[in-house]
Design a protein around this nucleic acid. Structure first.
Length: 559
RNA sequence: AGUCCCGUGGUGUAAUGGUAGCACAAGUGAUUCUGGUUCACUUUGUCGAGGUUCGAAUCCUUGCGGGACUGCCA
């Protein structure tokens, strides 16, 4: 793993530069401790990959460490299923946190003690305002807020009330603990924000131990401080929360001084990245679970044939800035093609079969021909492909009336069957409807293996399988998840678009060697222009990576 | 409207006062037993206006544009 990660070493971005500077200056004792803090309320997606590759990557680059921390402070949305998936997906991408797996909920006791400290310092108070009243008195973006009538309760009263909040004496929402800062602060988050709310809900790890739960703005800086995190990296929307983050660190007796730095989150063209919307797709059964290959989740990408290396590489190439950007999904696909071209074994397959009969080839003979597994990897070896009198080729590889620059089979023309023989089309057989249903061809026995001793060349090389010796496989064709112009925008009807044509089931014929493949094995289908993966969850089925199709120049020529 | 953040080819990013570079995308050509890969080449950019300076993408002023913030979510 370390080899790969070294290979992926990211260029210097503003965060890496800042951290390098801190290390140089001996800030935080010259240490780099980061954390990746997902809330376990959904599966990780490619956007999380960007964040976690930074968190784990930058720590590794400085010999520091990165903690995996479940930010489980809101019991109503969280679940162990998500915890497990997060752990699995990060490991799969190739990062490890050693023993440093933490849960924010394990700090609930400490959070409580620190809250008491704030109350004792006169920096927090119990407020009886309802949510609506709170909202009404908070002011607006342009007008200051009004101080709560409960703001000046005595320390003793606050202490007593807060204890009784914890002991379950009050109803949900009846009271909050608020930080006492400044109701006229231009930053709304500093206007006496709530730091504890009463919420009776069974926490997936703490059960009913607590009925009060800390808010993110209060809990997060403490989590970082407790763990000794030096650099707390998060996305841009938390930028405006930073003054509160710093306020908590300054006013509570924690030793470490973590610092928050923000970067822009990933947006991808055609891709819905919102956890809320992805959850909607799963719950509404628009997709077959979080790992549906149409999902931009890590596990969805995995089933779609994405490799860990390709995802890490993508994350280093998109860079790290504070600019709101929209990255072309073509870059992600490029990163995968780049990896797969080097590593994926090739195999021949026919999606839309057209029968070819080699008239001068004996009926009961089978010739096992050598085929190279991966021309770009000398160590990948070779396999045997059966050649018989009756073959299938792809319908798109034959044209009765070929336009100029069509290199493949047509009446009277000679082409190469890859790793096989040169064949010439002598006759087309049609059905009553006038459709071509069979080709009568002849082969040149001298061209076994695919080259002619007389040195003559053919323009086209096509793929083929034996009628009798091939394997029939069901194939699911997946499109990109969404083809919406502005997937991030509200009101975009992405659900309908998903149902229309993002999934197509077909049958195809493939070489017999495919049936020996292991689930999860990756192939590049010869000449077909697709990568595919042997699905590890549905046995025997193949998924084609339509979105990772090799460039289809022929289709473009016809446009 | 207020506070904060951000503006570099079509897209994503380098250049931290000194030749605007890289990648993706697009295009042209060559090679090729995958119309893939590979290789070569080409097109396209510093948001506008002032200022400081020998010199500005970079510093200053200002305009314009984009984003975040008005959960007892994270």
């Amino acid at each position: 793993m370390s080899e790969n990660i070294e290979k992926d070493a990211a260029p210097l971005d503003f965060i890496r530069e800042m951290i390098a500077e801190d290390v140089k200056n001996g800030k935080h004792g010259g240490k780099v401790i980061t954390r990746f803090p997902p809330e376990p309320n959904g599966y990780l997606h490619i956007g999380h990959a960007k964040a976690l590759c930074l968190d784990f990557g930058v720590a590794a680059e400085h010999g520091g460490r990165c903690h995996l921390r479940m930010d489980d402070t809101n019991p109503t949305k969280e679940d162990m299923e998500y915890v497990e998936s997060i752990i699995k997906d990060i490991h799969w991408i190739g990062w490890d946190w050693g023993e440093h797996l933490y849960f924010a909920s394990d700090y609930f006791g400490q959070f409580y003690e620190y809250a008491i400290e704030l109350i004792e310092k006169g920096l927090a108070f119990v407020c009886d305002l309802t949510a609506d009243e709170f909202k009404d008195t908070r002011g607006s973006l342009t007008t200051p807020g009004v101080e709560s009538p409960y703001r000046n309760r005595s320390v003793e009263e606050n202490l007593d009330l807060f204890k009784r909040m914890r002991d379950g004496e009050f109803e949900d929402g009846a009271k909050t603990l608020r930080a006492k800062i400044d109701m006229s602060h231009p930053n709304i988050h500093m206007r006496d924000p709530a730091i504890y709310r009463i919420r009776r809900f069974n926490h997936f790890r703490q059960g009913d131990k607590w009925c009060i739960y800390p808010m993110y703005d209060y809990a997060h800086p403490l989590e970082d401080a407790i763990e000794g995190v030096t650099h707390s990296l998060c996305s841009l929307e938390f930028e405006i929360h930073r003054p509160l983050y710093d306020w908590v660190i300054e006013n509570v007796s924690v030793e470490s001084r973590p610092e928050q730095t923000e970067f822009a989150r990933l947006n991808l063209t055609y891709t819905v990245m919102s956890k809320r919307k992805l959850l909607e797709l799963v719950k509404g059964k628009y997709v077959n679970g979080w790992d549906d290959p149409r999902m931009p989740t890590i596990c969805g990408l995995r089933r779609r044939g994405y490799t860990p290396a390709s995802i890490r590489n993508f994350c280093t190439r998109i860079g790290m800035t504070k600019v709101n950007s929209l990255t072309d999904v073509a870059l992600l696909e490029h990163c995968l093609r780049e990896d797969l071209n080097k590593t994926a074994n090739r195999v021949m397959g026919v999606m839309d079969p057209l029968k070819v009969v080699i008239e001068n080839y004996p009926e009961d003979e089978t010739d096992w021909l050598d085929a190279v597994n991966n021309p770009e990897d000398p160590d990948s070896g070779s396999r045997k492909v059966p050649f018989t009198r009756e073959l299938y080729i792809d319908r798109s590889d034959f044209m009765e009336d070929p336009p100029k620059k069509y290199f493949r089979l047509s009446p009277g023309r000679e082409v190469r069957l890859r790793y096989g023989y040169f064949i010439t089309c002598n006759e087309t057989i049609k059905n009553d409807a006038g459709e071509v249903v069979e080709l009568r061809c002849s082969y040149d026995p001298e061209t076994r293996g695919g080259s002619a001793p007389d040195g003559r060349k053919v323009k086209g090389t096509i793929h083929w399988v034996s009628v009798n010796e091939s394997v029939k496989a069901e194939v699911r064709l997946y499109d990109r998840l969404f083809t919406v112009e502005n997937p991030g925008a509200d009101g975009v009807d992405y659900l309908t678009q998903l149902n229309e044509d993002s999934l197509e089931v077909k049958e195809c014929y493939v070489e017999p060697s495919v049936s020996d493949s292991k689930p999860g094995a990756l192939f590049q289908f010869e000449r077909q222009g697709y990568f595919c993966v042997d699905d590890d969850s549905t046995d025997e089925l193949l998924i084609f990576n339509r979105s990772v199709a090799l460039r289809d120049s022929w289709a473009k020529m016809n446009k």
